[in-house]
Simulated scan of single mutants.
Amino acid sequence: MSVVDVQIGKRLVAAREAVGLTQRDLEQYSGISQSTIHRIETGNRAVSILELSALADSCGVLIADLQGTNTLAEQVLCAGRTNDAGSQALVDYMIYAFGLAQRLDELGVAEAA
Rank of each mutant, 00 (worst) to 15 (best):
R81E: 15
E27Q: 11
V76M: 12
N44H: 15
L107F: 04
A54M: 01
Q34N: 12
D65F: 00
V6C: 02
E111S: 03
L107T: 03
M1W: 02
F98R: 15
S48G: 11
V61R: 13
E106F: 01
Q102F: 12
N44F: 08
G108E: 12
D105E: 10
E51K: 04
A85W: 10
G9I: 04
G43C: 06
L72K: 10
A97G: 01
E51A: 01
A97H: 10
C59V: 06
S35P: 09
R16K: 04
E74G: 15
V61E: 07
L104W: 05
T42W: 05
R16Y: 05
M94S: 08
L90G: 09
Y96G: 08
G20S: 13
G31Q: 05
Q102A: 15
S33T: 06
T71W: 03
I37H: 08
L77R: 06
L77H: 04
L62S: 15
L104K: 13
S33L: 02
I32W: 09
A56K: 03
I40R: 02
I95Y: 14
A64P: 01
G108N: 13
Q34L: 05
L100N: 11
S53F: 01
R16N: 07
H38C: 06
T71V: 06
A14S: 11
R103F: 01
E51Y: 03
I95G: 13
L26F: 07
L12P: 00
L26G: 12
G9T: 04
D57I: 00
L62Y: 05
E106C: 00
D65Q: 10
S33P: 07
N83R: 05
G31E: 11
L104D: 05
N83K: 02
G60H: 10
G108C: 04
K10E: 07
R81T: 15
S30F: 03
A46P: 01
N83H: 04
G20D: 09
I32C: 09
Q88N: 13
A64Y: 02
G60Y: 09
R24H: 10
A54I: 04
G20P: 07
G68C: 02
A15F: 07
I40Q: 04
E17K: 14
L104V: 01
Q28I: 13
V109E: 03
A73D: 15
A18W: 03
V109L: 11
C78N: 11
K10S: 08
D5V: 08
C59M: 03
E41C: 05
F98I: 02
A97W: 10
V109M: 08
D65W: 04
D92H: 12
N83L: 15
L50C: 00
L100Q: 15
D65S: 10
V13W: 11
G80D: 14
T82I: 07
E51S: 15
S87E: 15
E106D: 13
Y93M: 13
L104H: 07
N70I: 03
I49V: 06
I63L: 14
V4M: 12
R39N: 13
V47A: 14
V4T: 11
S33A: 11
S87Q: 14
L21G: 01
Y29P: 02
A14N: 06
S58V: 01
I8P: 12
V6E: 08
V3N: 12
E74N: 13
I95N: 14
M94W: 06
T22G: 14
R45W: 01
L107A: 08
A56G: 06
E111M: 09
L55Y: 05
Q23C: 02
